[in-house]
Design a protein around this nucleic acid. Structure first.
Lengths: 103, 103
DNA sequence: TGACAACATGTCAGATTTGACATATAATGG
DNA sequence: CCATTATATGTCAAATCTGACATGTTGTCA
């Protein structure tokens, strides 16, 4: 939970509420972002484990390479919905997703 | 995984792809819907456990009572994103969410 | 070096989701 | 029975997310 991390997130387009500094982030807001990043990492790991390219995954989803890229980097323009759909398309089970989220 | 359940979902506005009958639902589509329903149930249980009304939860979220209601019934117009945000606003931890999703 | 493949970043019109509101339907107590 | 409170259902303009596309960057192999 370093300032560095926050700065990094802000640079990626995150701008929680109107708040500008670290102290303004509520527990929930942080938890939400952390969860999204967890799912991002899971998508990337699962994809790479399967030896697939972003283009190949995007085709399974009727999406596009750029969206998969943004998804894997935790971009704020990508919903958790899409992350979940991607994980399921990659063959993840609910149990696996649950375990990953639970840390 | 009964036909009855599918019919029930269809009546709630679910219309997966263009497919009209049970056999047309892919594994992923079913898993996605099941996950959404799991989260719906978790929101309702947690809210009731805390003795809160839908109006009270909606205020925590800057949302509205009608949206909370739809959320708890797994309405297709409500995103998993909003469900997750609700759970976090109700004080759920990532661990709890993960455990719930994992069944 | 250059060609190629995989991934990242930026933009935007169209699609989906949102809060808000009106209104309907329970459920409870008097 | 009538209030009152909680929840459900329907609608819609505004906000957000999406796929598509262009283009930039990085890594690798010859």
């Amino acid at each position: 939970m370093k300032k560095e991390r926050i700065r990094e997130l802000k640079n990626k387009g995150w701008n929680i509420g109107e708040i500008e500094d670290f102290l303004g982030l509520s527990e929930e807001e942080m938890a939400y972002i952390e969860l999204k990043i967890k799912l991002s990492d899971m998508v990337r790991e699962l994809r790479e484990k399967k030896g697939l390219t972003q283009v190949e995954v995007s085709q399974k989803l009727n999406s596009s390479q750029s969206r998969i890229s943004k998804m894997e980097s935790g971009d704020p323009s990508v919903s958790i919905d899409l992350q979940i759909k991607s994980l399921l398309a990659l063959g993840a089970t609910q149990e696996e997703i649950g375990k990953w989220i639970g840390c």
